[in-house]
């Protein structure tokens, strides 16, 4: 499974090759990088192993079709969006659709994270320490243990007594709040 042949070629480069010669084999290489990840995403939303597998197959077919039609710049964000929307469609057809899912599942295609300049990141680092103090206790604790002390989810759960799911959610919320606080700080300056 550890092929090295194409490892040095980035997703973007594979797509560029494809746009030049329209040989679908480039897409094969690219999509296989995402099979496992997509299977996981589909499983998360559909909660059924067979359905998740079929769903990935449909996403592959859809992707191959769409990529013939137009150019995609940030493949990873794009295919993630395609996959989520496809899962939502499936749930809708089965009538399992809820508004809660609707709000969380459809994501607009954001600018790729690569766009953030390093200089900006450096400035932000100063603000992180300040912002960290403003998080609630649970989030502060989890974020500190995870990012500064490099503990795993399991270890944080043992230290704090939270469940792994709680640790994950404190981390995610903590990170999101940190971002918001930092954005606010840089605007004020």
């Amino acid at each position: 499974m550890n092929g090295i042949k194409y490892n040095h070629i980035s997703d973007t480069e594979l797509l560029e090759h494809f746009y030049i010669d329209h040989n679908n084999e480039w897409l094969g290489v690219l999509l296989q990088r995402y099979t496992l990840l997509l299977l996981g995403v589909c499983m998360k939303y559909l909660k059924n192993e067979e359905q998740a597998k079929d769903c990935v197959q449909q996403i592959f077919e859809k992707t191959i079709k769409e990529l013939q039609k137009y150019k995609v710049d940030y493949f990873k964000s794009w295919i993630y969006m395609v996959a989520k929307n496809h899962c939502l469609m499936q749930l809708r057809e089965k009538g399992k659709y809820t508004t809660e899912l609707n709000e969380n599942i459809i994501v607009p295609l954001e600018d790729a994270p690569e766009k953030n300049s390093f200089i900006q990141k450096d400035k932000q680092l100063d603000n992180v320490a300040v912002a960290l103090q403003q998080l609630n206790k649970e989030q502060q604790q989890c974020v500190t243990l995870f990012f500064l002390e490099k503990k795993s989810y399991q270890e944080i759960a043992s230290i704090t007594g939270y469940s792994i799911l709680q640790v994950k959610s404190h981390l995610q919320n903590g990170k999101r709040n940190l971002k918001l606080l930092i954005e606010k700080m840089s605007k004020e300056k």
Binding site: M1, N2, K5, N7, D11, E25, G28, V29, Q32, R33
Partner: peptide, 9 residues
């Protein structure tokens, strides 16, 4: 060589 891949970028 396609079989070799599966790996990662």
């Amino acid at each position: 060589s396609l079989k070799d891949i599966l790996g990662s970028s």
